[in-house]
Amino acid sequence: MNTIINGLAKAISLILSFDRELYAIIFLSLKVSGLAVVIASLIGIPLGAVCALRRFFGRGVLVTLLNTFMGLPPVVAGLAVYLFLSRSGPLGFMGLLYSPSAMVIAQAVIAMPIVAALTWSAVASVDARVRETALTLGATPMMAEWRMLSEARLSVFSAVIAGFGRTMAEVGAVLMVGGNIAGYTRVMTTTIAMETGKGSFELAIALGVVLIFVAFVVNVLFRMAQGRGMTV
């Protein structure tokens, strides 16, 4: 019990004193997951929307695949990306392994199916008559599809949040492709794992507190967006 209390006390002092190492780790986590989710959304939102709005050969298979990969264990994604980016792998010439870029790639791979599958579900739930109504108001087919996506915008936003939440929480992929290098690829989750192994619980607990806080803030932001209604 002592360890926990001491840990919590030290954690709070680390947070409040703006400890440099701690905040560098926090910002790196936010940057890596943030950028990964942006990339995942740039691909995933259009992909999910197209699956919901248009018919094409193989659509059903694609949707099933997306839903399957939504549950992909991050460590498996990490392994795949590692094998690709390793010097002995096909993309080795890019020299990306053990860098923040590799972590962003791995996390984008993890988040993309989540964003795509949830976007698909959101757009598919929109009243189909919205598309026709848009056409009767003079929209082009493309504008009408965009309107369908807009109708689901809150759900799409929550899909992005879900992707962000998953990437902030994972440790397997970023550890494998990032290497947990001090000051370079060390993020909150890998630091917690490492520090716990070393027995220095203060830093680990501090980061745990911060992770929970970040999740809380993200949820608050989401509720605010919801509460504001849908006035664009």
């Binding site: 010097r87 002995s88 792998g89 290098i181």
Partner: peptide, 21 residues
């Protein structure tokens, strides 16, 4: 010059080096 230490188990470290990483 920046030295990035990637710390894993010995077997893994050698494997990493064998892959050219």
């Amino acid at each position: 010059v920046k030295i990035d230490v990637v710390a894993v188990g010995t077997g893994k470290a050698i494997e990493v080096a064998r892959r050219g990483d």
